[in-house]
Amino acid sequence: MRRYVSDAAELTEEYGIQIGRWKQYRDLGPLPFDAMWCVIPPGGSSAEDVHPEVEFAVVTRGTAIYEEGGEKVEVPTGGVILLDPEQRHVIHNPSPVQPLTILSIYWMPQDAAAVADAADADAAAATDGASGGAGRD
Rank of each mutant, 00 (worst) to 15 (best):
G129I: 07
H51K: 05
T77N: 12
S45Q: 13
M108N: 13
D111W: 08
S46H: 01
V54H: 04
V59P: 00
A119E: 06
E10Y: 08
P41H: 12
G29E: 00
F33K: 07
H92K: 08
M1L: 11
D111C: 11
I91V: 15
E71V: 15
A126V: 09
G129M: 09
L103F: 03
L100R: 00
Y4M: 05
Y25D: 00
Q24F: 01
V80A: 04
D120P: 03
L31P: 00
K72G: 02
A126R: 09
E48F: 02
T101A: 09
Q98M: 07
Q18S: 11
A123I: 11
D49V: 15
D120S: 14
A123P: 01
S95L: 06
V50A: 12
I65C: 05
L83Q: 12
V90A: 05
Q87Y: 07
G78L: 02
R3L: 14
A119Q: 08
G70E: 02
T127W: 06
A134V: 15
A123F: 12
R88M: 13
D34W: 12
L82Y: 11
P96D: 04
P99E: 05
S46Q: 01
D120G: 13
I19M: 12
A64C: 00
D111P: 03
D84I: 10
D111L: 12
V58I: 15
S131V: 08
G29F: 03
G44M: 03
A116R: 14
G79W: 00
I19A: 06
S6V: 06
D7S: 07
P52A: 07
V73W: 07
L11K: 03
T127K: 10
D128L: 15
I81W: 04
A47C: 10
G69S: 12
E86V: 13
V115C: 10
T12Q: 10
L83V: 08
P96M: 01
P30Q: 12
S131M: 14
I81K: 09
F56E: 12
L11C: 03
